[in-house]
Amino acid sequence: MNTAASPLLSVDNLTVEIGGANVVDGVSFDVAPGKVMALVGESGCGKSLTSYALLGLLPDAARRTAGTVRLQDRDLTALSERQLRKARGKEISIIFQEPSASLDPLTTVGAQIAAAYQTHNNVSRSEAYDRARQMLADVGIPDPDRRLHQYPFELSGGMCQRIMISIALICSPQVLVADEPTTALDVTIQAQILDLMKKLVADRGTSIVIITHDMGVVADIADDVAVMYAGRIAEIAPVQSLFDDPKHPYTALLLASVPKLHHAPKTDLATIEGRVPTLSEFGAGCRFADRCPLATEKCRIEQPPLFDCGGGHRSACWHIDRMPEIRKVAA
């Protein structure tokens, strides 16, 4: 991807199994320092499981069966649970879609942020609170002294997400994983949170893996994009290249189904018939074959590898040369 800087986070062949099916299947991507990688796709495509697997936080039903997650020169998948706990928060952190569900309702937000700091730093309570106060100011919370002593229910969704970001970042991890961090928020608050994340990248050089289904969010914040479909990466590319010249039918149709400035009002938008297959429906070939206007016999039988299209752009499709046909459908 970014050949200039060596990757900070390098995910290779990550594979997660549920009930015998690979719900995350051979996912690989690199994130350079201070860069934002977006994982996009419809619900059920394995975005969340991929993000949990990065931190070794998979649900009981799921198991990582292959792959590595290298953070600098350490493979996180080789760490013991105890070592992983040490790494979480300090080297790699995660925030979720529903901030209120991830915060402890019975503890003040100040105590929660301070505790996160004390987990990794041998400091006094008052020193931890000082850090928490500073962190709240950094994430743009007005009147941090008062906020420190409030409980989550006293705060709005946007405020709670800022608190979650404070907890995730207080120990200055190199990587922040954000699973749909703005999906539950109003667009006005979403814009504030995205600006905050961009500022963190610029000021601290944090790398971000952001999961979203919103192409607008991708267009706003991502440097690189991996489009996921049914557990696999369908296409991966620098952001501008992906929007300008999608090389996978799924990406092209996803992009065309969002109304854009140049669309005449009340005309038909491109759609994708059918739905994402569930784990019991995965076939041997391309998992998009049932919905793909370009699908051929070969697609149903044989899984397409990620083909290199140059410029860091790769697509898992047997018929990249036929993309102009899709562009007609998706005009």
């Binding site: 709005s156 814009a191 600006d195 192409m215 607008g216 267009a219 952001v239 929007f243």
Partner: peptide, 21 residues
């Protein structure tokens, strides 16, 4: 505040970010 699904448009548009809630 609504992000446009086009990186060139979105990143060059005039921003008018609302403070507070």
């Amino acid at each position: 505040a609504v992000p446009e699904a086009d990186p060139a448009v979105q990143r060059s548009k005039q921003r008018f970010v609302l403070q507070g809630e």
